[in-house]
């Protein structure tokens, strides 16, 4: 699903956030990405979404070569990738329902399809009863779950999460991870950047460790599913 070959990213300031990174993530895997602050975790996720362009190296995501992808195709790539952010990035000028519906509106779904899919996604994260509320009225954990519902409502084959549990207490964090695991169980490839080493250990999945922009460890998961 994701192949990096000797990928480097140098930011305009001249800082090398990633250097000579190669990795391979298969479809259906669940992988954690960890490392110290500034190691380049977020940068790696941004490269996959083409929020940043690689300076060097080859990147293939979902069979598509990102190096050659023209700007106007980027939106169509992003529609195939669900993203969950630490600060969830919900819009507070509309209801939970409308937040989750946004990817479907962007992709141009039929209105009746939208209703059905949004409710299915909200049901999945256990927030169907709150569809008419403004996200301001939700707790941090609930907001993060709305963010996850929005990321998966489009049924993307790939789900990226950058510190999805960053602001949450351990119990809520575990709950969010369980939710992400459920999507992986039905075949979604999931890549999660996280600091939370205890939680990562508990999940027993493949773990990639970055240090100073380089891949220093690639520990396979307990199930032996890692490449």
């Amino acid at each position: 699903m994701i192949q990096f070959l000797n990928v480097s990213k140098r930011y305009p300031g001249g800082f090398d956030a990633l250097s000579n990174l190669s990795l391979n993530i298969d479809a259906g895997e669940m992988v954690f990405l960890t490392g110290h602050s500034g190691a380049g975790k977020s940068t790696l996720l941004k490269l996959i979404m083409l929020m940043e362009r690689a300076t060097r190296g080859q990147m293939v995501v979902g069979g598509q070569n990102l190096n050659k992808m023209p700007r106007r195709q980027i939106p169509f790539l992003r529609r195939q990738i669900g993203v969950v952010f630490q600060n969830h990035q919900l819009l507070f000028d509309r209801t939970v329902f409308d937040n989750v519906a946004l990817p479907l509106m962007i992709a141009g779904f039929e209105p009746r399809d939208i209703g059905r899919r949004v409710r299915a996604a909200l049901d999945k994260v256990g927030l169907l009863s709150k569809e008419k509320l403004n996200p301001v009225a939700l707790s941090g954990g609930e907001q993060q779950r709305v963010g996850i519902a929005r990321a998966v409502v489009n049924k993307p084959p790939l789900l990226l999460a950058d510190e999805p549990t960053g602001n949450l207490d351990p119990e809520l964090s575990a709950e969010i991870m369980k939710l992400l695991q459920q999507f992986n169980d039905v075949g979604v490839t999931v890549l999660i950047a996280s600091h939370d080493l205890t939680l990562i250990e508990r999940m027993g999945k493949r773990k990639l460790t970055l240090e100073g922009g380089q891949l220093v460890a690639d520990v396979p998961g307990l199930g032996g599913e890692a490449a």
């Binding site: 069979g63 084959p157 459920q182 039905v186």
Partner: peptide, 16 residues
């Protein structure tokens, strides 16, 4: 998220 997600193949991202 149900059956449809299982069809996630490497080329599922293609514009086609």
């Amino acid at each position: 998220m149900s059956q449809e997600s299982q069809k996630a193949l490497p080329d599922a991202l293609s514009r086609g």
